[in-house]
Simulated scan of single mutants.
Amino acid sequence: MYLENIVFDAVDPQRLGRFWQELLGCEQLADTPEGFETRMSVPGGPTLDLCFQPVPEPPRDPVRLHLDLRGGAERDSVVSAALALGAGRLDIGQGDVPWAVLGDPESNAFCVMEDRAAYRDTGPIAALPLDSADPERDAGFWAWLTGWTALDDDPRTLRHPSRCGPLLALCQEPAPKAGAKNRTHLDLRLEAGEDPEAVAAGIVARGGRELHPDWGVLRWRIYQDPSGNEFCVLPAS
């Protein structure tokens, strides 16, 4: 299994997808009534697709998974580029911090970060912070799912085995997960030969659970991690 997609619910997938594609320098893959998809490739590291799927109403807060963009010495220019593309500044109670907090055209919060040693070789997305009731527990869960490994100095933060690409950072949640589906989630892809039932059993054994929404026949399976964050497992290509 490997991490393949970052998926956004969007009222206007094309508008939101083009915003992120331009800001991150991605390569467009698809633009259809079913959504918009663009690809971010990190030299020497993973390839991640950003997928924007239509929903009838604006997604609700809170945002439990968001993007931290690499800024560093270029922070102000990244902020300016985002604002020019349709982002806005957000106050989420962050106070006086060295990073900038913005909202994309559908008010998904994201941050443009200051320089940190851990962000070397991440590409334009520095980190994917994910809310968790128990970050160390959930880091183990996501390490098993993705094959990513913990940073030497932080067991709650995972990175692709190449040591390139964005970090997956499990962060202490400010409040338990409510009933609403996360507006942004991650997709995993099975490798050829992997047994979907064995994967499902492994997820449940590690504290996750499978969901069975009434969405018709799907080619993928939907789960929640131990903190209630949704993710999908897609069949092998």
Rank of each mutant, 00 (worst) to 15 (best):
P155W: 05
T122V: 08
P62N: 05
R39Q: 08
D152R: 12
T149G: 15
M113S: 12
D49T: 05
A139W: 03
A127D: 08
T146E: 05
I203E: 10
G72M: 10
D214T: 13
T157W: 02
H160N: 08
P43I: 03
L29G: 00
G123N: 05
P54K: 04
V112N: 01
H212C: 15
R137D: 07
P196W: 07
D9S: 10
G228T: 02
H185A: 06
L83P: 10
I92M: 11
P124V: 05
D152W: 11
A200D: 14
P129D: 06
V101P: 05
E210S: 15
E4C: 10
P213N: 07
L29N: 05
P196A: 09
A178M: 14
D9M: 09
P196K: 06
L167C: 08
L168N: 02
G123V: 10
T38V: 08
V78F: 01
L69P: 09
V55W: 07
Q224Y: 08
V63C: 13
P176E: 06
V217M: 14
P155K: 00
A87H: 05
Y223N: 12
E191F: 13
S80I: 01
R15Y: 00
L50H: 07
D138R: 05
A201M: 14
D91R: 03
V233I: 15
S227K: 02
V204T: 15
A73E: 09
G93Q: 09
L90A: 11
A200Q: 12
P196R: 00
H185P: 05
I6C: 08
F36V: 04
D104L: 07
Q172T: 14
I125R: 02
Q14S: 11
R39W: 08
T184I: 15
G123F: 06
D31P: 02
D31H: 01
R156D: 14
G140M: 04
S80N: 12
D134H: 04
L170N: 10
M40G: 00
P155V: 09
C26W: 05
F52W: 01
Y119V: 11
T38F: 00
P196H: 07
V42G: 04
R120G: 14
E4Y: 03
A117P: 13
L83G: 08
V233T: 12
L50T: 04
P62H: 06
A126I: 09
S227Q: 07
E57N: 10
S132N: 01
L211T: 09
K177H: 15
P161F: 04
